[in-house]
Simulated assay, not measured.
Amino acid sequence: MSEDDKIAAWAALLRTHAAVLPRLEKALSRAGLPITWYDVLLVLNAAPHRRLRMTDLGEQAVVSRERVSRVVGELEREGLVERQANPDDRRSAFAAITAEGRRRLRAAAPVYLAAVEEHFLSYLSDREARVIATALWRVLGTEEHPV
C-alpha cells in the first residue's frame, strides 16, 4: 500500500465519521436521547452490575473523559443515572444506570441501530465490514494499551 493510500484511508475515516455522526445524532434526538447520553447509558448497561467507576466510564465511553462528568450530571438530573459512593475507595464514585435509564436505552436502541444500518452498514458488504472492524479494533487496542 502506498503512502497516498494510507493517507486516503485516514481521510476517509475522518470524513465518514463527520458525515455519519450528525445523522445518528438527529435520529437519536427524535428518540429523546442525545448521542452522548446514549453512549454513556450503553456503556453502563453493559458493565458488571450496570455500574462503573467514573474513571472507568471515562475510559470506555466515546464521550471525552473531560465531558463524562458533565454528561453523567445531565443523566442524573433526568433520573437515568445515579451516582453511588464507592465503599472501597472514598475518592471515587460509581455511575449506575437506573431502571428508567435502561427503559430509555431500550426504546432508543432500535432507532440507533436503524440509523447505523441506513447511514453506514448498508454501504458495506459483510466482508468489508469485517475488514474495517478488524483493522480499527487492532489500532484501538494498540493505542489504548501501548506496549
Rank of each mutant, 00 (worst) to 15 (best):
V81I: 04
V81A: 04
V81K: 09
V81S: 09
V81D: 01
V81F: 01
V81G: 07
E82L: 07
R83K: 15
R83M: 11
R83I: 05
R83S: 10
Q84D: 09
Q84C: 11
Q84G: 07
Q84H: 10
Q84P: 05
Q84E: 14
Q84R: 15
A85F: 02
A85Q: 13
A85M: 09
N86C: 09
N86T: 01
N86D: 15
N86I: 00
N86F: 00
P87S: 14
P87D: 05
P87W: 06
P87Y: 04
P87H: 04
D88R: 12
D88K: 07
D88T: 08
D89V: 03
D89F: 09
D89I: 02
D89C: 02
R90E: 11
R90V: 13
R91A: 12
R91P: 03
R91Y: 13
S92A: 13
S92L: 07
S92G: 00
S92M: 04
S92T: 14
S92F: 06
A93E: 12
A93D: 09
A93N: 06
A93K: 11
A93L: 05
F94W: 07
F94I: 08
F94T: 08
F94N: 03
A95H: 00
A95D: 02
A96T: 12
A96M: 09
A96L: 13
A96S: 10
A96Q: 10
A96N: 00
I97V: 13
I97Q: 06
I97T: 00
I97W: 00
I97P: 01
T98A: 10
T98M: 11
T98L: 02
T98Y: 06
T98R: 01
T98F: 05
A99K: 10
A99P: 14
A99H: 11
A99M: 08
A99G: 15
A99D: 14
E100Q: 14
E100S: 08
E100N: 07
E100H: 08
E100V: 09
E100A: 14
E100L: 12
E100D: 08
G101Q: 03
G101H: 01
G101R: 01
G101T: 08
R102I: 10
R102L: 14
R102G: 13
R103I: 01
R103E: 12
R103M: 09
R103K: 10
R103T: 07
R103G: 10
R104F: 04
R104S: 05
R104H: 02
L105K: 07
L105E: 04
L105D: 07
R106K: 12
R106T: 12
R106H: 12
R106Y: 03
R106C: 05
R106S: 15
A107V: 10
A107P: 08
A108V: 04
A108F: 08
A108S: 07
A108H: 00
A108M: 05
A108K: 03
A109L: 13
A109D: 11
A109V: 13
A109T: 15
A109S: 14
P110V: 06
P110G: 06
P110C: 02
P110D: 03
P110L: 06
P110A: 05
P110K: 08
P110N: 05
V111F: 00
V111G: 07
V111D: 14
V111Y: 03
Y112R: 13
Y112Q: 06
Y112N: 04
Y112P: 05
Y112A: 12
Y112K: 12
Y112I: 07
Y112W: 10
L113N: 12
L113H: 07
L113F: 07
L113P: 00
L113R: 14
L113A: 09
